[in-house]
């Protein structure tokens, strides 16, 4: 009989990467939709942001699921990379990776760590100040101090207007996210066991569209606020 290994199997591990990946891609789409509102209608952006920032369902159900997915996806990704590295103790003197696999698929750890670095900047810019105002200072009003309007749109614009370095970092980060998604989208389907001659070519096409359009959308928002203000 096979010696049963304790813990999750290699297939279980990759299924977790895929499922958290699916959730994160869904989150990206949701995040982008709201960001897009900011270039069309500042007031509407304020209202939607206030809803997302104060609605208990979003704050105490979806946000924890998101945090869990983010941590899991990054931590497991790095753990798996370490494990995979251990599976070949002596490296090849000559290894032609480009002969049989795309750069994106071979460097998920590189693009992934770049996105993690971006997330640190993003948390510093938005998430930590937001949590601070709401839950540390206890100001749930969402209002600008000393003014009769919401603060969200102002905060967003201030992060980009006259900030070329931050905008450049955003652009680079989203290029890396795009590279990550170019492999990740279709790879997630394969990992949960979906591969069909009928729909896999379509999934690959949709994956390419998603991987380019979604990061491009985030970049567009940053550029619009940079050039408009």
């Amino acid at each position: 009989m096979a010696s049963k290994k304790q813990g999750l199997s290699s297939i279980g591990r990759k299924a977790i990467m895929a499922l958290t990946g699916f959730f994160l891609m869904f989150f990206l789409l949701q995040h982008l939709s709201i960001n897009m509102i900011s270039i069309v209608d500042g007031d509407l952006f304020n209202e939607v942001s206030h809803f997302m920032g104060t609605n208990p369902l979003v704050q105490f159900v979806l946000q924890p699921v998101l945090i869990f997915s983010v941590i899991f996806h990054f931590a497991w990704g790095m753990y798996l990379e370490y494990q995979n590295n251990q599976a070949r103790e002596v490296k090849y003197a000559m290894y032609k990776g480009s002969a049989n696999a795309s750069w994106m698929s071979r460097n998920m750890i590189v693009s992934g760590l770049a996105v993690l670095a971006f997330l640190a900047l993003h948390f510093y810019d938005f998430w930590i100040p937001e949590i601070n105002v709401k839950y540390v200072q206890g100001d749930m009003s969402g209002m600008l101090p000393g003014a009769d309007e919401f603060r969200y749109y102002e905060e967003l614009v201030h992060k980009f207007a006259g900030q070329p370095i931050r905008v450049a970092l955003y652009v680079i980060s989203f290029v890396m996210l795009s590279l990550h998604l170019l492999h990740g989208f279709q790879s997630a389907f394969q990992s949960v066991g979906y591969n069909s001659t009928k729909y896999t070519p379509l999934i690959k096409k949709l994956g390419n569209i998603f991987a380019i359009a979604v990061p491009a959308g985030f970049v567009l928002v940053a550029l619009v606020h940079f050039f408009n203000h």
Partner: peptide, 28 residues
């Protein structure tokens, strides 16, 4: 002690018998 699959597809390309990646999905 084999590593984990990350779906790069390199195996399918280098396989002398052209075994398809869809077999990995079926195993999953």
């Amino acid at each position: 002690g084999f590593g984990n699959c990350t779906n790069t597809g390199a195996c399918e390309v280098e396989c002398p018998k052209g075994i398809s990646l869809s077999n990995i999905a079926r195993m999953n």
